[in-house]
Design a protein around this nucleic acid. Sequence first.
DNA 1: ACCAACAATATTGTCGACAATACAGGCACG
DNA 2: CGTGCCTGTATTGTCGACAATATTGTTGGT
Lengths: 208, 208
Amino acid sequence: MAADPRVLDELRAAILRGEFAPRQRLVESDLCEAFDASRFAIRAALQALEADGLVERQRNVGARIREISLEEACEITEVRQVVEGLIARRAAERVSDEEATGLEAIGRQMHDAVAAGELALYSDLNARLHSSLRDIARHEKASGIIAQLHGQMVRHQFALSRVPGRSKVSVHQHQAIIDAVVGRDPDGAEAAMRAHIGSVIEALRGIG
Amino acid sequence: MAADPRVLDELRAAILRGEFAPRQRLVESDLCEAFDASRFAIRAALQALEADGLVERQRNVGARIREISLEEACEITEVRQVVEGLIARRAAERVSDEEATGLEAIGRQMHDAVAAGELALYSDLNARLHSSLRDIARHEKASGIIAQLHGQMVRHQFALSRVPGRSKVSVHQHQAIIDAVVGRDPDGAEAAMRAHIGSVIEALRGIG
DNA sequence: ACCAACAATATTGTCGACAATACAGGCACG
DNA sequence: CGTGCCTGTATTGTCGACAATATTGTTGGT
């Protein structure tokens, strides 16, 4: 089908921005109007998003935004824990001096952001750090799975960022990851990443 | 789209049976005839299989069987290594007495199969062991990812099974996994599974 | 012999129309 | 008043026909 990329991207972005409530029905004709696209393009996009795990479809009933339970969010994060661990390990094995400098810069900015209480900036730096590690690790399959899992977590991710005091804890964990990677310590990097995401899982459980 | 399940399953099974060569073009009209289905159903199935990573498609060009390089196979197995490690850990945490007995039975059958040189039976038991561990761990996300990755590995899996002497090595690794799970030792189970799949990666690299 | 431009063909992409199905509301009946 | 059926409507599923595009083959020139 090769869904029209424009429609697919716009619809995916809309979902990730949280413009639809969980379990909200996605009626094809409505989407046609909203995105000014043919039903054909919409259907193809919906099928692609189903594969991404963002929407679920029942035959002859239609598509709806997938509801991701807290339990499922924990499972997703558990998988992320080990796969990001793999990425951290590989990053520690492959990091160049230049890349190491970049990581340390992110670490300093994170520290400053927390000190200044800049929550949004910190969240952005967090994404940058994980993204940099993926780039350094150069592990396509692992990166792809992380991307897939991340897409399903947006809603809970948002809830997590509003847990007070989390940034103060996680900044140290992030620093530990950076130190281990920069120090070319694969075991340490994996352990630090696991510890970090382990605390994310605990925070998730705490929300429920 | 919700591709006609019959067409999707048959086509997927045909690919997994190796009835198409890597990079072989999948012409829609040919598939229509082969599976006695409409082009519509075929297209939907192809899109689903693209999401599975079994076929790749270029716009206006068509679908072909995805070629999975040895390097990509290694990456896939590296991800499998950590995710199966997670499964083994959870299995050790959650295994019941009854399930433990089942695992030990598989271990004995594996031992016998290797002693008798029954390669096909051993391969079958291998699949049964990993499948049992997934059932015991009850981790849907992890199991789903393993299934996804496994589908992309069929060709290399076949090549692996023909490496002489592998079964004699792996039977001990399998036994170590079983022992750790039955002994309710999560750390040991994860380590044993990682060691096992680590040796699979080495064997894979040896093929090239 | 090689290359470029062009024509012919094969294949996929898109759409509109209709069929099939599920769901909601009303109606008869107990 | 509740229950089961039945009809009407909304929505999705499927198809065939045609348009758009890539690929292949051919021709003419150098």
